[in-house]
């Protein structure tokens, strides 16, 4: 299966979409949703695509439908929600690829430039910088990997225990 690019959207929007669908008994026409939300249709499509890739929404025949996983995420605590999304992200090839890269790197760190080059090679039709930003934002939310602007290094996330 080819590597699919991540749509340029955020996890908060994906979760907000799930909330809205839940308000509509789990299902709504995509056009009507865009009108209700006063949101550009193209932007909403990116959110729906993101939610679909994470398994939280399905899109049969012009509708957006909340999946059991999406419903479960809404009912979960913050940390459970993050764990669910982490698992969903790790099913995506682009995350698997970057994760492998980091696992095999010395001290599990690689320069951001390497990730950008990898993305450009893997997905030549996409804007690597935009994809990098989405990958980083999703990966940070899922606590899969982190990035330090100070060192310009991508690194494997080691979740810190909090009291």
């Amino acid at each position: 299966m080819p590597i699919e690019p991540l749509p340029s959207t955020g996890i908060s929007k994906v979760l907000g979409l799930c909330e809205i669908l839940d308000d509509h008994q789990g299902k709504e026409d995509v056009y009507r949703l865009a009108q209700d939300l006063h949101m550009p249709f193209g932007e909403l499509l990116l959110v729906i695509k993101g939610a679909e890739m994470l398994g939280m929404v399905e899109t049969p025949g012009g509708d957006a439908v909340l999946t059991p996983l999406g419903k479960r995420a809404l009912e979960s605590s913050m940390n459970e929600k993050k764990a669910l999304l982490r698992q969903a992200m790790l099913k995506l090839k682009v995350f698997q690829h970057v994760l492998k890269l980091l696992e095999n790197a010395q001290e599990n760190e690689v320069p951001a430039e390497v990730i950008l080059e990898e993305l450009a090679v893997l997905l030549p039709q996409e804007q690597p910088r935009q994809l990098f930003t989405t990958l980083l934002n999703w990966g940070r939310y899922g606590e899969i990997f982190g990035y330090s602007r100070d060192t310009d290094q991508f690194y494997l996330q080691k979740p810190e225990k909090t009291p």
């Binding site: 955020g10 913050m78 934002n137 940070r140 899922g142 606590e143 982190g146 602007r149 909090t162």
Partner: peptide
């Protein structure tokens, strides 16, 4: 940071974050 779902973003600067974050 953990309570609001920001863990993983500790090292991020504001310009790297979306409005929601």
């Amino acid at each position: 940071i953990d309570k609001v779902g920001l863990d993983g973003n500790e090292e991020a600067y504001p310009r790297e974050l979306s409005g929601g974050m």
